[in-house]
Every structure is written in structure tokens, then in C-alpha cells.
Amino acid sequence: MAEMQNRNTRRDLLKNIFRGAGLLGLGGAVWGTAAEKLKASDIVLRPPGAILEEHFTKACIRCGICVEACPYNTLKLATVDGKAAVGTPYFEPRDIPCYMCTDVPCVPVCPSGALDPTELAGDDSGAVSSALDINKARMGVAVVDQEACVAYWGIQCDACYRACPLMGKAITLEFKRNERTGKHAFLEPVVHRDICTGCGLCQHACVTEKAAIFVLPRTIATGKVGEHYIKGWDKADEERLKNLKEEKAKKSSPEDVLNDWENLFDDD
């Protein structure tokens, strides 16, 4: 009888362990999936000085001190509406752009390191003590939809060009002859991504119904050519050739592959 009870207790114990492990697994799966989903926010603009998005969602402690430091109410804290990871700061330039305060009040108050003053260090030394340079911010990059931009239609508009705090540098106007009229010019806005901070003043100023120039996160809006293209007309870029390590030739040349009869047929 005692043995019987013992066995039952052991069975109950095992059952409970399995049940507990199962519940833990269930909870972990649901919660983990939710966390994975909730940490992701692809298209979101962060405050100046923000570290890379994949690190930012980890680092941000979701306190909103940057939001309170912003004098223009540009920064907002995400709620569960899915615009960004819940509780993290973001901004929507069409509503309120970043007005590029020269003292950058939002960055130094960040307690977590998600907004990193060294990203904006004025004298390139990377020292925290050096004055912050808001022009070093890389919140995103402006992109022009040429189909929706009236300047590309030939209508005179330089709203984005004039709104840009780095006028003539981040956005330039390219003059082109308007063949349709034969006597006018196109004044086409062109964004230079190495200078554009992503403040969104252009997007805010754009006259079209839905902005024809808009800021996207850099990871989304930028492409990459790859190391193997070299600008032959650019002395500095050609220097890279000298430092390039010669890649070892692969063992199998194209002829070898073509002459490899063995792999042409299935084993059976």
C-alpha cells in the first residue's frame, strides 16, 4: 500500500513537472513571439543621436525624458498603436519635424545610452565633452517622389529647398531646360544623403497633398554598391585598389565544372 502511494506521488510529481514545463513553454512561446513582434519597428524615425535601430529597441528604457526635453513637441512616445516599439520615442515630420535645436536638449538627458551624444560630437574626436553638432544627426534621409513633385512637372516650387536648414547643401536645385515649353526651366530638388540629417523640415514644407519629399530611415532608403565597384575617375577611390587583397581563384574553373561528367547524372 505504501509502495502504491509512493508510486502515485512520483507519478503526480512527474505529471506536475511536465504540466509546469508545458505551461512554461506555452507562456514562453506566446510571450516570446509577442516580444519579437513588438520590438520590431521597421519604418520609424528616431530622435537625433539615436544608435542603430536594432540596438535602440534594446537600449531605450522607455522613460520619455527626451520627449519632455523637446521644446517643439516633435518627439512622441509610441503607444500600442504599432508605430514603433511601445514606449519608445519617434517623430512624424509631416506633423512636427525636428527643428534642429543647436543645443540638442533631447540627447544629453537620455539615461540609457539609446541616444548617444558621441554620435553628434562636434569636433570628430568622439569625446562626450565636446559640443554637440545637430548637423551630424542622421535621423533618416529625405527621398523625392519625382512623379508627385510639382517641380519635376515644371511648376516653380522650391519649398523643400528653402525649408532645409542646410539649404543648398542637403538639398540642391538642379536646373534643366523644359523642352515642353521651350522657354522655361525645371528646378529639380535633389537630396544629398551624406549631408541630409533627416530632420523632415522639407517634408513638413512640401506643398503637395501628400508630401512628395519624405524622410525614411537610412537603413531603408539607402542602397549599397559593394566593394568591387571602383570609381576610376576618382583618385581617392582608386587608392582602394592598392589596399585590396587579391582574392584567391576558386579551385574549380568554369571548364572544370563543364567537364565534370560525374555530377551530371543521378546516382541511381
Binding site: 516580444a35 520590438k39 528604457i61
Partner: peptide, 14 residues
């Protein structure tokens, strides 16, 4: 997951 797991669903701070 690589994110503060309770903070993404934390109803207290929410």
C-alpha cells in the same frame, strides 16, 4: 529575444 521582454508588454509603465 534580445529585448527587455517585460518592458514591451509592461502594463505598469503603459
Amino acid at each position: 529575444v534580445g529585448v527587455a521582454a517585460f518592458e514591451v508588454v509592461n502594463p505598469i509603465t503603459m
